[in-house]
């Protein structure tokens, strides 16, 4: 057997791929040929070195990734088998999405709700839900004093009469009136009392003086605040103030 044909058979010899007769021939040649024997040794050591390379440690990240793939593919496989599994798969997926959506919001939401309840509970005793619209002040730029009598003098000796709309009427200051009327121009202070008066027309009677002394008016306002103002009081001459 020539060296060339032996060297071609060294590799199958290592893998036990030669028939017995062929193996014997090659073995006999190898015992007598140093060159072919050296080739055999070289290939044997190469093969041993290669066999030592069969354990490359798998990266942990890859192992984990493979399990994730396996999990996904298993669910895919299950969902393709039956409708009920597919529905359950969708349900699980929806639940997962919902959980992933809600989980980051749960703590801030609970904290916000508790804080709101706490603050609201603290504020409730101080809250007033009754609104007295009668005491609202007119927020117009200014208003004249009102002629409404809001107080009369109590006790004996005080005038028991009051002026009424029929006999007396209030007009804004400088109002035009007819000749048979008595017109008083009153200055009403911020407390509703008459601070000053003047007779613009007609005669001042004792009844009128009593009225000035004992009546209290709703004061006028300026920018929503009580302020002094002027008003004209007109008495009809043919009507007397009634008691």
């Amino acid at each position: 057997m020539s060296c060339d044909s032996v060297q071609e058979r060294i590799s199958p010899l290592l893998d036990h791929q030669l028939v017995s007769a062929e193996r014997e021939d090659v073995s006999a040649h190898l015992q007598s040929c140093a060159s072919c024997s050296a080739r055999l040794q070289a290939l044997e050591s190469l093969r041993a070195a290669l066999q030592g390379m069969n354990q490359a440690p798998i990266p942990p990240a890859l192992a984990m990734r493979l399990r994730v793939i396996a999990s996904h593919e298993r669910w895919r496989q299950l969902s393709s088998i039956s409708v009920s599994v597919r529905l359950r798969c969708w349900g699980d997926r929806a639940e997962l999405v919902f959980e992933n959506l809600m989980r980051p919001l749960a703590l801030p939401f609970a904290g916000g709700l508790l804080s709101a309840l706490l603050l609201f509970g603290m504020l409730v005793p101080n809250l007033s839900f009754q609104h007295n619209f009668h005491d609202d002040l007119q927020l117009a730029f200014s208003s004249d004093p009102d002629g409404r009598l809001v107080e009369s003098l109590p006790g004996e000796g005080s005038p028991t009469w009051l002026w009424t709309r029929d006999s007396v009427r209030l007009e804004p200051a400088n109002a035009i009136s007819s000749r048979d009327e008595t017109v008083l121009e009153l200055t009403i202070d911020e407390y509703g009392r008459v601070a000053d008066y003047s007779v613009s027309q007609g005669q001042l009677t004792p009844e009128m003086q009593s009225l000035i002394l004992w009546s209290r008016f709703t004061p006028g306002t300026l920018n929503g605040k009580k302020a002094s103002g002027k008003v004209s009081v007109v008495f009809h001459r043919h009507h007397h103030v009634r008691g």
Partner: peptide
């Protein structure tokens, strides 16, 4: 084929290492 959990685990346990080694080499 029926989506058994243990089978998926078994397949990975049995083949992930040799497949990785073969790919790497």
């Amino acid at each position: 084929r029926v989506g058994d959990e243990r089978a998926y685990e078994e397949l990975l346990t049995r083949f992930q290492q040799p497949v990785y080694t073969l790919s790497l080499r």
